[in-house]
Simulated assay, not measured.
Amino acid sequence: MLRKRIIFTLIYSEGFFMQSRNFRLQKVGNLGWLEKNYKFQSIAFSLDELIVLNATKSGKSITEFAQTVSDLVNDVFIPIAAGGGIRTAKDAELLFKSGADKIVLNTALIEAPEVVKSLVKQYGSQSIVASIDYKKVNGEFEVYINDGSTKIDMSLQQYIKYLETLEIGEIYLNSIEKDGTGFGYDFETIKNLEKDIKLPLIIAGGAGNESHLIEGLELNGVSAVATANLFNFIGDGLPKARKKILETKLNIANWHAVN
């Protein structure tokens, strides 16, 4: 059985890392602030993966973002997935060359499916993560692209089926309504969907403490839990969370035990 994972998501915009709440961004600090407060070399044993997303609202520079990914790689010795603004194969290639182990796609999944298929063919499905941003409106689940600004003409369930045809490796499912609240994941929706999702599922949006991570990891259909909450997991928050999770005997790696 594959081990489950704990993922930390960094939201990047115009040279700074952000706290996001319902997709409204609050500037927190630059790369120097991040290194000072999180010391990724020392907390590497607390994480299985890092996701870095470029949420710059307009004029995304893939070159600038790729440099940020490259700078992060120097201090991080865990797999990194990067995305945001990928529209062409060259964009993806630049991020891979900058040190990303995986790429995260969102808008391109709808607007450039042929590019997605070519990336899967070139790099393998395990290197491609499909990011889904959704919210519930009048009892219906709507899916959004372009940093949560554009609704697509498919329901959440239809969209998941569509993504399976693209042969991507896993799904990053993010609740816009829960995003940054710290009140817990959208468990009701996740539980309704997990049995029908054939791909590995990362859940995001709402984690505020280790109990939320544990509840997510306990779900059979969930492969990984992600948090982008810079405030709730600052300092030793992540090491403490992983220690608590290990005590529950969930199937996650104990990196201290194997090193």
Results as ranks from 00 to 15, higher is better:
218 E>Y: 11
221 G>K: 01
247 E>T: 08
225 V>E: 06
224 A>L: 12
235 G>T: 12
227 T>V: 03
249 K>V: 10
246 L>V: 02
215 E>C: 09
243 K>Y: 08
240 K>I: 02
221 G>I: 06
251 N>F: 15
232 N>F: 14
247 E>L: 15
217 L>V: 04
247 E>R: 14
243 K>R: 12
215 E>H: 13
238 L>A: 05
220 N>A: 15
235 G>R: 15
244 K>I: 09
249 K>A: 09
220 N>T: 14
221 G>M: 02
217 L>P: 06
226 A>I: 13
221 G>Q: 04
239 P>H: 03
231 F>S: 11
227 T>P: 00
229 N>C: 05
233 F>T: 03
237 G>P: 04
248 T>D: 10
245 I>P: 07
249 K>T: 08
229 N>T: 00
243 K>D: 12
245 I>T: 01
222 V>W: 01
225 V>G: 03
249 K>D: 10
242 R>H: 04
247 E>I: 07
234 I>W: 06
216 G>M: 10
237 G>L: 06
241 A>L: 01
244 K>Q: 12
240 K>E: 15
248 T>A: 05
250 L>A: 03
221 G>D: 01
221 G>P: 01
243 K>A: 07
233 F>S: 02
225 V>Y: 05
217 L>E: 06
221 G>R: 01
224 A>Q: 02
248 T>V: 04
220 N>V: 15
229 N>H: 10
243 K>S: 04
233 F>E: 02
235 G>Q: 14
234 I>F: 07
242 R>A: 01
236 D>P: 10
232 N>K: 14
244 K>C: 05
247 E>Y: 12
229 N>D: 11
239 P>E: 03
226 A>E: 08
243 K>V: 08
234 I>N: 12
234 I>L: 14
236 D>V: 12
215 E>N: 13
250 L>Q: 07
221 G>W: 00
247 E>V: 09
221 G>T: 04
234 I>T: 11
220 N>F: 14
239 P>G: 08
239 P>R: 03
250 L>E: 06
232 N>I: 05
236 D>M: 14
219 L>M: 10
244 K>W: 08
220 N>D: 15
231 F>G: 07
223 S>I: 06
239 P>V: 03
228 A>Y: 10
240 K>S: 12
232 N>M: 09
249 K>L: 10
222 V>C: 01
225 V>L: 02
219 L>W: 01
216 G>K: 08
242 R>C: 04
240 K>V: 02
